[in-house]
Amino acid sequence: MVHNDLDKLGDIIKAARKNKNLTRDQLAERVGITSRYLMAIENENHKPSYNLLFHLIRELGISADTIFFPENKVMNTELEQLTRLLRLCDERDLKIATATVKALLDTK
């Protein structure tokens, strides 16, 4: 049975916005929409365009999986935070991180 998980989109966006301590006005301004339209997305099941959804995901720093696979409940997990941090690393830092993780796994 297929569930319409996009019905949860508004709740996911609202939770991510609050988690980042952003007001509706602040987020709306950052993504170039009105706060009224953001309220409609969060509370009235309005579906944003692909372009707007892309900007919301990026601005909120959430994984697209949070929206498209909400059953995985990956929102703000330690793994997601680690992934975000790794994206900030340069090539040298990534080699160090990889060696560290391998060393941790070898001790198990």
Score class of each variant (00 low, 15 high):
2 V>M: 10
2 V>W: 08
4 N>F: 10
5 D>N: 12
6 L>F: 14
6 L>P: 09
7 D>W: 01
7 D>T: 11
8 K>P: 01
9 L>T: 04
9 L>V: 07
10 G>D: 02
11 D>S: 08
11 D>C: 02
12 I>L: 13
12 I>Y: 06
13 I>Q: 06
14 K>F: 02
14 K>L: 04
15 A>G: 03
16 A>Y: 05
18 K>D: 02
20 K>C: 01
21 N>Q: 12
21 N>W: 06
23 T>D: 05
24 R>I: 15
24 R>F: 07
25 D>E: 14
25 D>C: 03
25 D>F: 10
25 D>A: 10
28 A>H: 11
28 A>D: 11
29 E>L: 11
30 R>K: 15
31 V>F: 06
31 V>Y: 09
31 V>Q: 02
32 G>E: 06
32 G>C: 12
34 T>V: 02
34 T>G: 09
34 T>N: 06
34 T>R: 04
35 S>C: 00
36 R>N: 01
36 R>W: 04
37 Y>W: 03
37 Y>P: 00
38 L>Q: 12
39 M>S: 15
40 A>G: 05
41 I>E: 06
41 I>D: 10
41 I>Q: 03
41 I>R: 06
41 I>Y: 05
43 N>R: 02
43 N>E: 07
43 N>P: 02
43 N>A: 08
44 E>I: 03
47 K>Y: 08
47 K>R: 11
47 K>W: 00
48 P>H: 12
48 P>Q: 07
48 P>Y: 13
49 S>G: 07
49 S>P: 10
49 S>E: 12
51 N>C: 07
51 N>H: 14
52 L>E: 07
54 F>W: 03
54 F>H: 04
55 H>P: 00
58 R>L: 12
58 R>N: 10
60 L>C: 04
60 L>S: 14
61 G>T: 04
61 G>V: 07
62 I>N: 09
63 S>K: 01
63 S>M: 01
63 S>Q: 08
65 D>I: 03
65 D>V: 02
66 T>C: 08
67 I>H: 03
67 I>W: 04
67 I>E: 05
67 I>S: 06
68 F>D: 04
68 F>S: 05
68 F>P: 04
69 F>I: 07
69 F>K: 15
71 E>Q: 13
72 N>F: 00
76 N>F: 14
76 N>W: 07
77 T>M: 05
77 T>S: 10
78 E>L: 08
79 L>V: 14
79 L>S: 09
80 E>N: 05
80 E>S: 08
80 E>F: 00
82 L>V: 14
83 T>W: 02
83 T>P: 00
84 R>S: 09
84 R>F: 03
84 R>V: 00
85 L>Y: 04
85 L>K: 11
87 R>T: 00
89 C>M: 15
89 C>W: 03
90 D>H: 06
90 D>N: 15
90 D>G: 09
92 R>C: 00
92 R>D: 14
94 L>P: 09
95 K>V: 00
95 K>C: 00
95 K>I: 01
96 I>W: 11
98 T>Q: 13
98 T>E: 15
99 A>P: 06
99 A>S: 14
99 A>I: 04
100 T>H: 13
100 T>R: 07
103 A>S: 15
104 L>S: 12
106 D>R: 10
106 D>W: 02
106 D>E: 15
107 T>A: 10
107 T>Q: 10
107 T>E: 13
108 K>V: 08
